[in-house]
Design a binder for these strands. Structure first.
Length: 430
RNA sequence: GCUGAGGUAGCCUAGCCCGGCAAGGCGCCAGCCUUGAAAGCUGGUGGCGGUCUCGCCACGGGAGUUCAAAUCUCCCCCUCAGCGCCA
């Protein structure tokens, strides 16, 4: 949620920034929210006046009664107040609710360095690493490769759970765990605290960490329960300190979430439908940080560097894009995507999303920072970034590390996690 | 799932029976004192609004009774404990 103070005090700045998203809808929201706010303040003043009168009268009555003096006249006036107040209070809270609903739909302010553009085709490449290579002759889709190696069951998974689900078996499972552990170890080395979060959140907290559209588009809900399966550990990590005041001396707080992620993602599918590139469930190690406002740009670069380091250690070529205005969601002020090179697809595809949400997410969660007892609480900034999502990363590895004989080489950096194994060969057992 | 207890400021507690301006402690911040620190003393320490030495709101949430509700009545939510079940 955007800062209401800012809306009041620097409307021109807010309007200019929202304008960069080139969507009239946002400017309309901005204008309506300002209007409603003015209306609300007028109503509040009026209601406060009546409440003040009520308090005065009731004190006076108490005093008179205490001294045995009749107070019928005052009581008569006091009796007229509740009726007058009722209508006013109803309007006041209704207008406030309308204002807040509008406010919640206004996106975060964009960082100055976000490039202008209409969609993902206009994201700006800011870095590349490694040299893209093409897939060896005859390399099939990764799903078929995994099936051939006896490391995945897609048809059976689809029968029991539906499209978008999978069984992984054998070496690829060990590779999956190795990836997660390697990423986690790197983050722990760099000061992150590993966290296994709840995999379900209640609706209330969930509404504070993401935008409403996600509830229809991506989240799974538990039938008959007020519980939603998390779409990423970012969400429970962000909600961890909901409603609390963080001691500013404890910042920055660096968390490394590890969890499965569940997503409906109703929408189009790309190439390689059979497989694990786009699925309803995957494992992810996530970076999440609470920090002082002035530190967030620096930490945003830090998170990006951590994610890049993981792909460098895997020797996977990639590029980093600065996501443009038209492709940026409502919560982030700035976002980098890391796109790994997929040899068979001969394309860079998103494997990491690294966002600075500034104070937008923390304000919705009512998280503040400061010293308990000292006035002048501030809203901390939050940032999140994939470290590694193993579904996507495994696809890259299967494509890039496949040998002519069909086996898969274990990237050097992962071998210690596989007891020194250098190669994954076809599983002999069913 | 059953039974019981509970939800008051960053934390801990009193007030609830019997309605009348939310009390105290801890922590934290500032000042005084001190060579420095601790201790001690003084003040501050929820949210909103405004014509800023003012007002309103706030005791889990909502509704009701009343001139007046933390307090009385009703509904709901959440947490904890014990029991049951359980990797």
């Amino acid at each position: 949620m955007i800062d209401l103070e800012l809306l009041r005090k620097e409307p021109d700045r807010v309007q200019e920034n929202l304008g960069r998203r080139r969507r009239m809808e946002y400017l309309d929201l901005f204008r309506s929210a300002r209007e409603k706010d003015g209306e609300w303040r007028a109503l509040l003043g009026e209601a406060d006046g009546l409440r003040r009168r009520r308090n005065l009268l009731s004190q006076e009555i108490a005093k008179l009664r205490g001294s045995g003096t009749p107070s019928a006249e005052l009581e008569a006036e006091a009796r007229t107040l509740p009726d007058r107040l009722k209508g006013l209070e109803e309007r006041e809270s209704a207008v406030q609710a309308e204002r807040d609903t509008l406010l919640r739909r206004i996106p975060n302010l964009l960082d100055d360095s976000v490039p202008f553009g209409k969609d993902d085709s206009e994201n700006v490449v800011v870095a590349t690493w490694g040299t893209p290579t093409n897939a060896p002759e005859g390399l099939g889709p990764h799903g078929e490769t995994l099936e051939r190696l006896g490391m995945a069951e897609f048809d059976r998974a689809h029968r029991v759970s539906g499209a978008g689900f999978y069984y992984l078996k054998g070496g690829i499972v060990l590779l999956d765990l190795a990836l997660q552990r390697m990423a986690l170890d790197l983050l722990v080395e760099r000061g992150f605290l590993p966290v296994e979060p709840p995999l379900f959140l209640r609706r209330g907290p969930y509404e504070d960490v993401t935008d409403l559209g996600d509830f229809e588009q991506v989240m799974y809900r538990i039938d008959q329960e007020d519980l939603y399966l998390i779409a990423t550990s970012e969400h429970p990590l962000a909600a961890l300190y909901r409603g609390e005041i963080l001691d500013e001396d404890s910042l920055p707080i660096r968390l490394a979430g590890i969890s499965p992620c569940f997503r409906k993602e109703i929408g189009g599918h790309g190439v390689d439908q059979k497989g694990i590139f786009r699925v309803h469930q995957f494992q992810k190690v996530e970076q999440f940080v609470f920090c002082r406002p002035e530190d967030s740009p620096r930490i945003h670069e830090e998170l990006r560097a951590n994610a890049e380091e993981i792909f460098r250690r895997l020797k996977v070529p990639y590029r980093v894009v600065n996501v443009c205005t038209g492709d940026l969601g409502t919560v982030a002020a700035k976002k980098y995507d890391i796109e790994a090179w997929f040899p068979r697809q001969r394309a860079y595809r998103e494997v990491v999303s690294c966002s600075n949400c500034t104070d937008y997410q923390a304000r919705r969660l009512r998280i503040r920072m400061g010293k308990a007892g000292r006035p002048g609480k501030m809203v901390p900034h939050t940032l999140n970034s994939t470290a590694v999502a193993t579904s996507r990363a495994l696809v890259v590895l299967v494509e890039q590390y496949q040998r002519p004989d069909g086996s898969i080489e274990v990237p050097e950096v992962l071998r210690p996690y596989l007891g020194g194994r250098t190669t994954l060969t076809a599983e002999a057992r069913p």
